[in-house]
Design a protein around this nucleic acid. Structure first.
Lengths: 215, 215
DNA sequence: ATAATTATGTGACAATAATCACGACAATCT
DNA sequence: AGATTGTCGTGATTATTGTCACATAATTAT
């Protein structure tokens, strides 16, 4: 059973709410959240309902309370350490990604044959891959970001799973085999660009045969 | 009307096929593609059917022909120049992302206040944002990658749209307003990590109240 | 106090997507 | 040649997801 869309939307709501909090706004409405992210207000209410989040019959939602409930439902109401495997360009970008410094999702260490200390705030240490096992024995991390070359991704996952990692985000282009009790989220950047190409093509050529077939 | 899942799958098939070509494999079957990416074989055939792609009644699919048809359907059977806006860590990672050098999707120039030439293969020049307009007059680019801070993303899109860009991939966390005839693909990295957290939480705590409600 | 107004919450409905079951056809075997 | 096998192709079916209409509660106005 896969509620990917619900969860994605919940995360989007959370993102909007965080911005509202920053702006000092205390109250919001399904309708105004809708304006921010383009999801119908009724869909938003349906989602909240599904996750047991309730508002005030006329007064909309209290921003802080709603944010807290969203975080609880997303499992983000606690410290969430990630390790980063692969410290190439993509790994560096992820480690420095400012968004992560605001939420509870934090990258606490990176592993790469080229060791060193990453100059971010806070600084993230880079260790050799051989020390992953030892590191995980001292640090109860359950999540890993895989930003390694395609050909080592699977063996890396196997090792990390054996060491207790259960949630993966995979930036390599190949599908990974994992046991039932773990989860992999695949992010294929090339695929994301190609999606854009497809829809742009569609727009520029409305009478395309294939498109007709689809509609 | 949104066929996002179909298009995503088509792109995945394409990725598998490219690997098969590299390995020198000439023939494949819905069943064996399925093994690679975990999508049911009947789904694969249905997708092909929907896009008018046909195989041989018993002999499966010719790898090269299938790849070509997938590319045609995805609009990838031509040169696809992208420009990259924002040359921070993420921008650098994207510019150097090896996957792009193999397909037809290419980043041909980057724009950032900090100019310079990126040492990738091929080298990608970095120009000041002020020169975007002039650049687009000389180069008929229709697609842009937005890897800029959240607060400048919308104004950047407005400018790029005015200059003729119609396909965007947006790495900032905010939703962008665009006219009907353009397309934005939002990739929110924080959201991707949070999705992993959600599903990992679910696995570790099966009797969670909210989950029960859902099932 | 009563009526009008404005949001929420949700069951009923509609649209979309995925799966299944089976027919068609080409290749191989006897 | 005829039977058999393996794989595709697709209409029918089922499951999932999204939308709509409206009942409900809280607030404000008269």
């Amino acid at each position: 059973m896969n509620y990917k869309n619900h969860v994605t939307r919940l995360s989007q709501y959370k993102s909007v709410l965080q911005r509202l909090v920053k702006s000092g706004i205390e109250k919001t409405y399904a309708e105004s959240i809708s304006k921010h992210i383009g999801i119908p207000a009724t869909q938003i209410r349906k989602d909240f309902s599904l996750f047991g989040i309730r508002g005030n019959k006329r007064g909309g939602y209290n921003v802080l309370e709603l944010l807290e409930e969203l975080k609880v439902n997303l499992g983000l109401n606690r410290d969430l350490p990630f390790i980063l495997i692969g410290y190439g360009n993509l790994g560096k970008a992820l480690a420095r990604y400012h968004g992560f410094h605001e939420g509870c999702v934090r990258i606490i260490a990176a592993f790469d044959p080229k060791v060193g200390v990453l100059s971010s705030i806070p600084p993230i240490p880079v260790y050799p891959p051989a020390s992953i096992s030892a590191f995980l024995k001292d640090n109860p991390v359950k999540h890993a970001v895989l930003a390694v070359p395609d050909d080592v991704a699977q063996s890396m996952v196997d090792e990390l799973y054996a060491e207790g990692i259960r949630g993966f985000i995979n930036f390599s282009a190949i599908a990974l085999n994992i046991p039932e009790d773990a989860y992999v989220n695949n992010v294929d950047l090339e695929l994301e660009l190609e999606t854009v190409v497809y829809y742009t093509k569609e727009a520029e050529n409305k009478e395309d045969k294939e498109v007709k077939k689809l509609v």
